[in-house]
Nucleic acid binder design. Structure first.
Lengths: 240, 240
DNA sequence: AATTGACACGTGTATATACAAGTTGTAATA
DNA sequence: TATTACAACTTGTATATACACGTGTCAATT
């Protein structure tokens, strides 16, 4: 599901772009699987695997006996769900964003992750970054990049996307992450950096990121200003 | 992906239960697809579709050329992600929960949803419920059940799971939902019902629920006490 | 007029086959 | 010894075929 080269992925991307540029419009049916089979010169199974991707993404709704309806994704297309980095988010939303690196040094792993199975002796590079949009501080990111997979990161790279560095520079394939969101009272540091008003709380997003081979490579604590935080999700009902 | 009757679903469930009861343990490999093919007397494609379900759920990690590793789901198994109702959550977590129905009457659709494409003249049954755990108020749910799909709901049913009523009593198939999470200042009603301390904020989860045929049937505004709110998620990196 | 039945067409599931490509251990080779 | 080459496994992709089953149309029947 990663490489963009397979036939089913090419087809999926093509249909997505046709939806994006409104060749296929929300509320209308896609061509039937058999028609798409002819259109792309592939087997029906390949088409179906492509359509199932779109179904999982919430871009279409498959209806047995009828067809696949294009859903209106515009309404809920602010992608914080899934694994999306600040930099990517920034690009896709075209906000005027800025990243300031506050720390980039060796450190211990914080308490929260120790309670979740991370070894206390685990060496890590601590990276603290303050994200601002239009001059206003919005997010405080604390990343812990784990050795030996990640030996460190140039501060210049840290100003951009971490994922980009890990994937393009180090050749790693980030595969999945677990994430936990809570609302907490801010520490003094968070209060001053995020310019929080008295009694205002902070939204904490803590995540653990893994590679394809299940190697844990990154721990993140991300603190958001509550008034700037919005999380949008699309979910299918599964009976498992 | 809904009915539990198909072969691939039976296989998926079986493997899940074997993981659950630790016949297959976290960190170890599942039998290979070919072995599972023999074990279940099915084709490899059927096995693969079952395994892909588990992969999507974050229960296993497939590694090309090696096999499928069982992941440790215990650590992040508090399912608020996805569409899961309070009642189901309650059952799975075995909390001592209670539901009090505050309102059950006709009403207009609130502003938030009008801004998101819902018609102003849309008729709806307004259902307000206060959820408590161990005597403490935790969540305030405001549901709007849309006509003509849903003509109303017996208050007795409202004390249980709405989804159960819709699926088992009305025979509807709930398919997907969009969800948005924000942190806000509480209204006076929320402040008193949820027993919020001064300056404490409230977590608002607003969602729109759809049937298989894309019919919108339910709007929900769910307000959580910030100290009781926790949201856990598993996400795979997708390059689409 | 209302019901029934046949049919066409849609997606859902299951199977068999083939080859591509990643991983690992082993044997042959330089 | 170190490297290379290969074999034997693994998962990934693509194809062809068949049938089950949901939906809608339309004509025949009641």
């Amino acid at each position: 599901m990663q490489a963009t080269s397979s036939k089913q992925m090419i087809i999926a991307h093509d249909i997505i772009s046709k939806i994006k540029y409104r060749q296929y419009r929300p509320g209308t049916y896609l061509p039937s699987e058999n028609q798409l089979t002819e259109l792309y010169g592939s087997s029906r199974e390949t088409i179906r695997k492509a359509l199932n991707e779109l179904n999982d993404l919430g871009m279409i709704q498959k209806i047995k006996g009828k067809g696949s309806i294009v859903l209106d994704t515009q309404r809920y297309t602010f992608p914080i769900s899934g694994i999306t980095s600040f930099k990517e988010l920034n690009n896709s939303q075209e906000m005027n964003a800025q990243t300031k690196v506050l720390h980039n040094e060796l450190s211990q792993v914080p308490e929260y992750f120790l309670a979740r199975g991370v070894d206390e002796t685990q060496e890590a590079t601590f990276l603290e970054r303050l994200r601002s949009v239009n001059g206003e501080p919005v997010v405080l990111d604390k990343d812990y990049l784990l050795k030996p997979s990640i030996q460190g990161i140039p501060t210049k790279e840290a100003e951009n996307s971490l994922y980009e560095y890990l994937e393009n520079q180090l050749g790693y394939q980030i595969s999945y992450a677990t994430k936990e969101v809570t609302v907490e009272s801010p520490t003094d540091e968070q209060k001053s950096l995020l310019q929080l008003i008295d009694h205002e709380m902070v939204v904490a997003v803590r995540s653990m990121t893994y590679l394809n081979d299940t190697t844990l490579v990154q721990l993140t604590e991300s603190y958001h200003r509550p008034d700037k935080f919005k999380f949008t999700d699309f979910a299918r009902r599964k009976k498992i």
